[in-house]
């Protein structure tokens, strides 16, 4: 008999991953205009690297995807060059008057934000589908 718990767990893990992606993107955007005392110390935009949870081989031919879902493998800083702005009066300005700002790419962050949002919604839809399928099954054999 198929169990519904694994369906809920799979969708919940997907939602958790996308939520973290959303959080990380927000952190990148929040630090867009953060200045750093040196180019090496500038904030580096982060990326979430997710991985599929391995399906246990014995269960692959069973009737539930136990242990499935997605998980976060790592949150990795992107090695991008900082944005250097000429601001001689700034306390963090170097000898040439340049200040290092975080090299956050606005466009790609917004794209990631939207992708994470849509994927989160898709996970919610899958969750709702599992819920309605379970609820309908409970009605089986009623009102005859």
């Amino acid at each position: 008999m198929a169990d519904y718990q694994s369906a809920f767990q799979i969708s919940a893990s997907g939602m958790a991953v996308e939520k973290l992606r959303l959080d990380i993107t927000t952190a990148n955007l929040a630090n867009m205009n953060s200045a750093a005392p040196s180019a090496a110390a500038a904030y580096q935009p982060l990326r979430v690297v997710s991985q599929a949870r391995p399906l246990e081989f014995a269960r692959q031919f069973g009737l539930a995807l136990a242990g499935g879902g997605a998980s976060v493998q790592a949150v990795v800083p992107q090695p991008v060059a900082p944005r250097l702005v000429y601001e001689p009066g700034h306390p963090y300005a170097d000898a040439k008057g340049m200040v290092a700002y975080a090299g956050v790419n606005h466009t790609s962050e917004m794209l990631n934000l939207n992708a994470a949002l849509r994927t989160y919604e898709a996970n919610v839809a899958a969750f709702a589908a599992a819920r309605s399928m379970a609820a309908r099954t409970l009605e089986l054999g009623g009102k005859q």
């Binding site: 997907g14 991953v17 996308e18 599929a52 499935g68 992708a115 994927t119 996970n123 899958a126 969750f127």
Partner: peptide
């Protein structure tokens, strides 16, 4: 659901 969870 597994495919959607791993869409990215």
């Amino acid at each position: 659901a597994q495919n959607i969870a791993n869409a990215n």
